[in-house]
Design a protein around this nucleic acid. Sequence first.
DNA 1: CAGTGGTCTAGACCACAGT
DNA 2: CTGTGGTCTAGACCACTGG
Lengths: 225, 225
Amino acid sequence: MQVREYVRALVAGDSPGTPAPSERELVTRFGVARMTVRQAMDALVVEGLLERIPGRGTFVARPRRSPSTVVGLTEEMARRGVTVESQTLLARREHAGPGVARALGLHEGDSVVHWRRLRRAETEPFCVEDVYLEEGLLPGLLDGLLPSSLYAQLAHQGLRPTWVEDAVTADVAAGEEAGMLGLSHGAPVLRRQRRALACDRVVEVSRSVFRADRYTLRLQLGRAG
Amino acid sequence: MQVREYVRALVAGDSPGTPAPSERELVTRFGVARMTVRQAMDALVVEGLLERIPGRGTFVARPRRSPSTVVGLTEEMARRGVTVESQTLLARREHAGPGVARALGLHEGDSVVHWRRLRRAETEPFCVEDVYLEEGLLPGLLDGLLPSSLYAQLAHQGLRPTWVEDAVTADVAAGEEAGMLGLSHGAPVLRRQRRALACDRVVEVSRSVFRADRYTLRLQLGRAG
DNA sequence: CAGTGGTCTAGACCACAGT
DNA sequence: CTGTGGTCTAGACCACTGG
């Protein structure tokens, strides 16, 4: 740990290609065995901070590309420089329908929390989101203690989603959602069904509908590097 | 390597939770040092095949969830059990427009290959795809040697895409694409712009339009495990 | 040639699990 | 208590790089 953090601090801010101390140099500096130094450096290599080149040395690696991560809408839009405001349209206990029950791993008719929000970017509505949660997951939600970010609130309880399964499709606005989004019937919308897991537990099932003219889904896929 | 492959073969097909040989057992069996055994096991652990539990032992890990990988439409649909047929509507050299030039890392007006295909699932058209390629990337393409899978053909030249950046949005069918897809004007479609990289080179830039009623985008995101 | 990372040895002590 | 993985030592030889 000491060697690892020493090297991490040493190369912090260095540009890619900058040489790190050689393994034997660290051996003498810390008075430890070389295997110990290697384990420290291994951690930094796996982490993507360093890069080994046999016969040459160890160097600061160029930052890896990383695939899209699991984030909630609040954080996703914040990264694009847009602030999301949410207006709760509905928050109540309901009996789970067949789809929601299956997705949450419950039985049909079990009690679940249904939370509907109109989401605005710079005051313009662009999304209506229906979230279904296992009852008791967010105590106080139905008493009016509504967090501004679901994912932040889940993270606060150690249940930050780390895995999502999405189904995305195109459709046209219909029924009351058109009015909520300020769209005329027949205007294009993007629909997303999501199942989010944290610690191998399904913590969120949601259906979102986005105004196509105000939201584009951006994705990066592939292995890091 | 010998220890690693011995263990890999030994636990092949075993169900999750099955104990692997202990490190010291492998030490005596192979007559090597324990550090050597550990390195062999480490490789299998990072690979996700094994799982270490301190004080208990090493066990076959349950298969990890893995995020969506980079695949072409042919392979994506094949995994859903659907065969994709492609009909080339256009394959010619063109001068790159500003968007395509930027995405491919070329200058506007540079020569590029434009390949348009109508894609059918079980004979039903569901997608029109416009692909733009750097000239010379797929020699013979314009001479009528049209592969049935672009990604397979790229892979054949060591340029299998390992990284994609997608922008997905909803829209309504318009112009000639409606006719090609058998849609009336105003029917919902999913549009996808893609930039695909292989070996840090942009090898594909494409715009696809999908019939919303015949294609749903499915996504899995998160870190493996 | 000297220096680098890649790999290996033959031990050792520790914390933790299960009995 | 024994057996497990986690960590460490103080060396060693190898292949490779660059001057």
